[in-house]
Design a protein around this nucleic acid. Structure first.
Lengths: 228, 228
DNA sequence: TATTGATTCAAACGTATGTTTCAAACATAC
DNA sequence: GTATGTTTGAAACATACGTTTGAATCAATA
């Protein structure tokens, strides 16, 4: 039996980190910096100061390690998303709808929350998140598929109530467009604040998020042009 | 001396395609389907029915081949973008500004135009385009940097005139957000029209583009929320 | 202490990759 | 027709990778 499951909400018992955790942490960091395919198991085990064979021993394969890392990142975010949507819906007067801004905020802001709980730097975390959704050969880990379906379902339903004039399939499209805007920003975050640089330092994370949310709200509520 | 330069607007002289062209075409196709890193030179040369060594002979290295493919795709698109912007500006009454929709259309639609001139299928072409801008380890070929700087400069200037209330750096950000929306859609185009499926077949390319442009216009023109 | 099962370790395996080599084939001009 | 520069061809090179192996080590139990 392995000493530690891939425990998502580990209470961090002051104990020494297990080999498995050392691998997970080193892998997170390297994947964020260089991408899943580019980082070799040798690089990971060297950074983690563990033996090369221990990855296959504890995870089974490199692919399974990648899945584990992605699950560790994405699962708490999706949980937080649903939690926030729950709150919004429970505070709601009957027959009224949540504001588009609140929906998008509940969808996007959990990323920022996740950062505080991560050991990665902001930039690394964002890069990793972006990779999780943008890697060209990315296949979603099995366990995340139903999770994501639920999230998309719940949020598109909420958006449909907020924007009753939009056909439902357009709602889903625009939700994906919003994800795209976010992901692409995360992937190229250094490019973004390099040119926005010149003026004092980089904008804070919340500033970036605010800008993205502003943009996505506009996109979501945009009128639909006729298709000739 | 090589028999054919990497000629962008080749008049297609009925002559046999050179080895170099065979490589370029096979590489385009495979890169689009599987990504730059994943495709081996052996796969390319086998598909092109040329010798393995000819890639290094004609291009120097795999990286240089990747650059050549990207340049072949992106350069005509950027040229078309600037051409369309030129037209819009020349038809303009003095002291008036181009509509946001026209600016975004001039920026995004050249992709569709490029498809018609490409030998790739629509889907493959879009995938390749997406990869050109979304590959995690993507470094832009040297020759494209000034090209892109000009495009961003010209379009953000035009947008600044259309939206004089927006601070200039926000304009550039939103231009990048629009690119992100587009790129991400291109990369996951099959996912998009799979769920939109159920209803009759896939939406046409122009439909997709129209939806993206609608969304981006909304994003571009969205009000700016106060940063507390 | 002796035994068992889990874990670590160094080393090797098998395979795939980008690149290089150098001789053969080709085309072109003298 | 011979000489010259270019292009092709089959094979090998060097390296890197994910994975496997089997012995050594550790931890806990009886």
């Amino acid at each position: 039996m392995h000493a530690s499951q891939t425990n998502l909400a580990e209470p961090a018992p002051a104990a020494d980190p297990t080999t498995k955790d050392l691998i997970l942490f080193a892998a997170e960091e390297l994947f964020a910096a260089e991408g899943f395919e580019k980082v070799s198991l040798r690089a990971i085990t060297q950074a983690a100061e563990v033996n090369l064979a221990s990855v296959n021993y504890h995870f089974g394969s490199k692919d399974a390690l990648i899945d584990a890392v992605i699950e560790n990142i994405v699962t708490p975010i999706n949980r937080e998303r649903l939690h926030r949507l729950d709150s919004l819906e429970s505070e709601l007067a009957p027959d009224s709808a949540i504001a588009t801004r609140d929906i998008l905020d509940a969808f996007l802001r959990p990323l920022v929350v996740a950062i505080k709980e991560s050991d990665l730097s902001e930039e690394m975390f964002f890069r990793l998140m972006g990779r999780c959704m943008a890697e060209p050969d990315y296949r979603m880990p099995e366990s995340l598929i139903p999770q994501f379906q639920e999230v998309v379902q719940r949020f598109s339903d909420a958006a449909a109530r907020a924007l009753p004039k939009l056909p439902h399939d357009l709602i889903v499209w625009r939700l994906y467009f919003s994800i795209g805007t976010l992901v692409q920003s995360l992937m190229h975050i250094e490019a973004l604040d390099s040119f926005s640089g010149g003026k004092s330092g980089q904008p804070s994370l919340d500033d970036l998020l605010t800008r993205i949310i502003d943009y996505c709200i506009g996109g979501f509520e945009a009128p639909v042009s006729e298709n000739k």
